[in-house]
Design a binder for these strands. Sequence first.
DNA 1: GGATAGATTTTGACAATTCAAAATAAAGCC
DNA 2: GGCTTTATTTTGAATTGTCAAAATCTATCC
Lengths: 223, 223
Amino acid sequence: MATIAVENYLKHALLLAERSPDGLVPMGELATAMEVVPGTATTMVKALADSGLVLHEPRRGLRLTAAGRRVALNVLRKHRLVETFLVNVLEMDWAQVHAEAEQLEHAISDAVLDRLDALLGHPATDPHGDPIPSVEGTLNSAVYATLATCATEISLRVVRVTDQSADFLTFAEAHGLRPGAVAHVVDRNLPAGLVTLRRPRGKPFALSLAAAGRIWVAPNEAG
Amino acid sequence: MATIAVENYLKHALLLAERSPDGLVPMGELATAMEVVPGTATTMVKALADSGLVLHEPRRGLRLTAAGRRVALNVLRKHRLVETFLVNVLEMDWAQVHAEAEQLEHAISDAVLDRLDALLGHPATDPHGDPIPSVEGTLNSAVYATLATCATEISLRVVRVTDQSADFLTFAEAHGLRPGAVAHVVDRNLPAGLVTLRRPRGKPFALSLAAAGRIWVAPNEAG
DNA sequence: GGATAGATTTTGACAATTCAAAATAAAGCC
DNA sequence: GGCTTTATTTTGAATTGTCAAAATCTATCC
């Protein structure tokens, strides 16, 4: 069985690999994500390579093997189903549930996971809009535009909020920017780094381009 | 924050202390409960004593301090509320939930615990009839008779089953011996070490005195 | 009142995970 | 092509929790 540390390294390796075109994850990125010094990541990656969970390409980075990816997807599935449970069933604040799920993802058995999945009705995404890996190990990563890049003056539907910090999520919540919410970009001022947004029957408000880049949207079909 | 190992030592120390008249827990008992060699228990108890969680009386045993007892009760509360959740909400088999809760009890925050408690309606006991410590740290340990010691030929209500092994619980379940079940002792044959039981509209069946001693009962008020 | 059995403690070692800091390799720059 | 910057790896050490086995108590038993 993978230890908690191993599960965490693999999970972060997966998340970083998903954002990398060739699947190669630089050591430094993994170390940053894990909040350890680079040497620690090197040590652990070599151990993971010995266990056949990753390939270590010295001085270049690491790649998940099929076995490593399987473990990582299972942990990610637990994380996101737990978040969904905490929000949908226990009615907890979506800004807090990430931290809770970080612990629970390592304590939940596959048996509990299955029951949780059934209780929640086999959801496809978690409360932040992040896709929940299937039992079979499929990760549906549809690509959307963000509020920093999408067209202006058309009705949009928020599909995903990719920032787990409680502060950001509380801000988003306060402006109704949860997945499913409808809004449109009133104006985008690149020099000022500002995006102005408006929700139906709401006042316009601004957020930084950096923040806008973490809110993913699709054209609002109904709107 | 207490580590998982520390939480486990304190939890087992509490359970053993509850069954000891003077609250003194011999080292060997703790080591057996924790499934470690005696020397390991000694090492850990000294560390716990340094943290002010237990008192170590060399060669005699240990006692929980108020701080240690507080931590232990919190872990036990998590364990038993999680078991209740797994059975009542996720509809899992009561024979499995102990093992699951052993992991989850260390991963659940107090915030999640509170929500879980509310969802379950603030239960007083878990699915095995074990009392759930209150938030304030009260452990209601009412003393009952067991099927090995109770009066015969009177209607009884099962209140508690104090064996966490899946085999025993599956056996108990198969005969309907869950808390709340009604039964009476038909016969007790001490030389043979057998207790014969009968449930309403059921066939009589036998179990060993040792097994009977793990099923706690109260007189059945309703008849 | 010592020998002995049983429990407990001590000692030395090991695996996992981490850090700090020195060493090394790679990449880009004039 | 040599120099500098940056990323990565190596080395040595600390921490936590564990075991095996030797040493040490304690209580008890003739």
